[in-house]
Write a protein that binds this DNA or RNA. Structure first.
Lengths: 156, 156
DNA sequence: TATTGTTATACTCTATAACTATA
DNA sequence: TATAGTTATAGAGTATAACAATA
């Protein structure tokens, strides 16, 4: 990597952002970090033909929880109608399949196919690599653990 | 408050979200917390006639940094063209005014008016109250400080 | 030649309502 | 009566390119 660069420009020199309520505002900071992380993930996923949202759904489908579409919607804060579109897309790619939930014939269980597992695996590497270069770059291993733990408490 | 309730449904019972890569994924957690915080702030701002984005710009305009539109764009990760629209909106409301930057005649400095300061003040109370009920509810005071500090390191 | 604000445009994300089939 | 998935639609958010004024 000689002219690597791209990554993400965090903009705004520190000397101009001194006094602002927003800097103490967790909501604002979360929004900004999310924007950085989202951009990072989006760029990393382009070569894989996935959007951040598709990647998230694929991740759930490839895990061991066998979620219904409704589970996916709640977990990712998506409207059920949005899940339909994403699952359609992933199904067209051959990455996931819909299976009838034996406990409730109305529900579709989403499962990653073999091809989907493989695609998720490689995409995940790219996403993690990009993340380590952007949002995690400034944190020590201990801080990363702490941040994860605190976010987890807030998120659920 | 007898039937308070509304607030935000975090959905998904813990017993179904056991094993998932995403739970260790800071990017995912940040996205989810941001969704919660954004919804919380949006609801709190409805009575004030402000959107989250307008509120953020108003906050910067009412601070002591006298930002240009470009500063606002970089700080909030907005495209400069989006800042135009928000400032137009706030100006129509009489909350901010554009002033020529003496150091650069191309640049507009955005300042909160007296009316804007008042509106920001009351809106801020609502936003903070809503936030304490949602994303900060699960954290101790010490944890809030730690979370803020870590997010700040990542955000800039 | 580069940058600030601006206009315009297209695309993605999000919110909402209604319908069907099952429960 | 309520819930899972689906369809449709409108609005908000975001990305991109081009232009005039100024640096």
């Amino acid at each position: 990597m000689t002219d690597s660069s791209p990554v993400i420009d965090l903009g705004v020199a520190p000397d101009r952002i001194d006094a602002t309520d927003l800097l103490d505002d967790i909501e604002f900071l979360v929004a900004r970090v999310r924007a950085i992380g989202s951009l990072s993930a989006r760029q990393a996923l382009v070569p894989h033909g996935l959007r951040v949202r598709s990647y998230a759904v694929l991740s759930l489908a490839c895990g061991s929880i066998s979620p219904t579409q409704r589970d996916v919607a709640e977990f990712l804060f998506l409207d059920p109608s949005q899940v339909v579109a994403v699952v359609d897309e992933l199904q067209t790619l051959g990455y996931v399949e819909r299976a009838q939930d034996p406990r409730d014939r109305r529900a579709n269980i989403i499962r990653g196919t073999e091809r989907g597992q493989a695609a998720y695996s490689t995409a995940k590497e790219s996403v993690i690599a990009a993340r380590d270069e952007t949002i995690l770059r400034a944190l020590s291993p201990e801080e990363r653990v702490t941040l994860t733990r605190l976010l987890l408490k807030v998120a659920f």
